[in-house]
Design a protein around this nucleic acid. Structure first.
Length: 573
RNA sequence: UACCCGAUGGUGUAAUCGGCAACACAAGUGGUUUUGGUCCACUCAUUCCAGGUUCAAGUCCUGGUCGGGUAGCCA
């Protein structure tokens, strides 16, 4: 189907995997993708899971687990978990029976917590959050590292901690009253090692375990152990967990875990014209700047899907950007290139007119009816042909006509001749304007000799798309642009203020009849315009709705005066 | 500030053991073309700085500079 890059990708993580295989450190590779179900997946997550699932696909016998990191019931919801699964599947990955939840391990984690207490490696601390934070230590005015301050409860006998911990679980204490802390090293240079919190008291109903627990393990006490339980060999995550690795390893070394996973970090994806954190995307949704997580302008996978970005294009993009540890920002244009590249190969061609002007071909009889044949995919005979209805009146796009065109304008103007794609050459004989001077109709004559061919005695440079006025279907189309016009939405402060007010514009277009009955999510190319996707949520048989996926590249841009838009660096259809 | 990490064209990644800096995107130019699309060709770098080792350094060593991450009872 698609022609994704065929050669195996290579990067420093795949090199590690390959060498671990070569040295027989592991005989099979197991990776995992561990989203927290507190929002929708975005293209940054796609980079991460294309890596972990990709490595699993590239290595015989390897597998990749999907695991929900559901240790904070205050933020997590079941609806997010199902949306995440749908998105990962849509992207073409399959975890088979290996669907896990951190919450599946709660009992085991609890047992390991008691184990640490008994080993003298954990204690119940009754300090407040503020006291713990203060005691963790920072640095003094001279910039000299200040060791942390031992909690007054640090040397509490393990019997006492064990008793208190059991009471914590039993619900004997209020939320926040005490925590379980690891007893590691209050003077460690890495603050994560200064007696990190393992468990907190939290009365919240968990999407899966309900009210079974009123204490929940922290991420650090959960992730690596779940990796070990599942037999993960390579636990790939983003750079902000780098400082947590010593702690990850401390738990693996100090607990009787069944395997020894290794954490490897890589840089997360940044994209121009985009904000990427779930926190920020949540704000856009909550404050109503977009219609929801699946708004076609969102960098979420479900938003991109709705906009018509093919999963294969996103996969290709994730492969092309590579994996490294350097902070970087990828040009959105690379993603767009991958989308166009795929769609150019597979999107059936149609014609559509976004801003119609009526063309009356006066040399044709009133009731003229004719049909032309055109390829579904030019250059691919396998794709077949489509029939295009034609009559005396057709629509063309307003952009394709100028009253006083410059020489480089290869389109229609008074007295000029153009080719209606797949049909006849026409010449504009008369322009009809309303009282405001707005062009409302063009009277043209056609050349019968140019039916689906070009004249031999003269050069016709303009080729226009069109739709028969009698046959075309009126259609709502959403013209979309970057949600943020600026390359860096945070360059001038709060990204919320940088939202592009023109990022969505609803227009009423007319499209080739055999377009709107295509299945939802089909992406078509409107010739000379770009790609458009049948909205999978809002489209009905009576009222089709299309989302503009992406415009075609254009070598010629109309004068800015034609487009009442501030000419920014961003590309327009 | 402390700890950790990073630095190669405009952007993102490559470069066996130290051996002619490669690919893609973007931009620009030209060609092809019944989509101003696609396709094809060409143009676009003193590898952050300063020293050092070496016949030879993007790669190794020392010292800087700049950038990012972290400093939740979030993940």
């Amino acid at each position: 189907m698609t022609q994704e890059t065929t050669e195996q990708p290579s990067d420093f993580i795949r090199d590690i995997v390959a060498s671990d295989l070569a040295s027989n450190k592991h005989e099979t590779i197991v990776t995992r993708f561990p989203p927290e179900p507190n929002g929708y997946l975005h293209i940054g997550h796609a980079k991460a899971f294309c890596l972990s699932f990709g490595i699993a696909q590239e290595n015989p016998g390897a597998r990749c687990h999907l695991r929900f990191d559901d240790t904070n019931p205050e933020k997590e919801e079941a609806r997010f978990a199902s949306a995440i699964q749908e998105d990962v599947r849509w992207m073409g990955f399959d975890w088979g029976e290996h669907l896990y939840h951190a919450s599946d391990c709660f009992e085991q984690l609890y047992a390991w917590a008691e184990y640490l207490i008994q080993e003298g490696k954990a204690y119940v601390d009754e300090q407040s959050g503020d006291e713990i934070r203060a005691g963790r230590g920072r640095l003094n005015a001279d910039g000299v590292t200040e060791p942390g301050l031992d909690s007054p409860f640090r040397d509490r006998p393990s019997d006492e901690s064990l008793d208190l911990f059991r009471k914590m679980r039993a619900g004997d204490f209020d939320d926040g009253k005490m925590v379980l802390r690891a007893r590691i090293d209050m003077a460690a240079a890495n603050l994560n090692l200064r007696d990190p919190v393992l468990y907190r008291i939290l009365r919240a109903t968990h999407p899966r375990t309900g009210d079974d627990w009123c204490i929940y393990p922290m991420y650090d006490f959960t992730h690596g152990q779940c990796d070990a339980i599942e037999g993960i060999t390579h636990s790939l995550c983003s750079l902000e967990f780098e400082n947590h690795r010593p702690l990850y390893e401390w738990f693996i070394e100090n607990l009787p875990v069944p395997s020894q996973p290794r954490q490897i970090e890589f840089a997360r994806l940044n994209l121009t014209h985009t904000v990427m954190s779930k926190r920020k995307l949540t704000r856009l949704v909550a404050e109503g700047l977009v219609s929801g997580w699946s708004d076609p302008r969102m960098p979420t996978l479900s938003g991109m899907r709705r906009r018509g970005y093919p999963a294969s294009a996103i996969r290709e993009f994730c492969q092309r950007i590579g994996i490294s540890k350097a902070a970087s920002t990828v040009d959105f244009a690379l993603l767009e290139h991958c989308v166009r590249d795929e769609l150019n190969r597979v999107a059936p061609r149609r014609m559509g007119v976004l801003d119609p002007i009526k063309v009356v071909i006066a040399t044709l009889p009133e009731d003229h009816e004719e049909s032309f044949e055109a390829p579904v995919l030019p250059g691919d005979p396998e794709s077949g042909v489509r029939q295009i209805a034609f009559g005396r009146e057709v629509w063309i796009d307003r952009d394709d006509f100028m009253l006083d065109p410059p020489k480089k304008f290869f389109r229609l103007g008074p007295g000029r001749e153009v080719k209606l794609r797949h049909a006849y050459c026409i010449t504009c004989d008369e322009v009809i304007q309303d009282s405001d001077g707005k062009v409302i109709e063009l009277r043209c004559s056609h050349d019968l000799e140019t039916r689906a061919c070009l004249p031999t005695d003269r050069k016709v440079k303009g080729f226009l798309h069109w739709v028969s006025a009698r046959h075309g279907n009126p259609t709502e189309i959403r013209i979309l642009d970057h949600l943020f016009a600026a390359e860096d939405p945070e360059a001038d402060g709060d990204f919320m203020d940088a939202v592009n007010p023109d990022s969505i514009k609803v227009i009423h277009a007319v499209v080739e009849p055999n377009t709107v009955d295509l299945p939802a999510e089909t992406v078509v190319q409107f010739e000379r315009l770009g790609y458009f996707c049948i909205d999978r949520f809002d489209s009905t048989a009576d009222a089709p709705v299309l989302n503009q996926t992406i415009g075609l590249k254009s070598g010629w841009k109309p004068k800015p005066s034609n487009q009442p838009k501030k000419a920014k660096k961003s590309k327009k259809a």
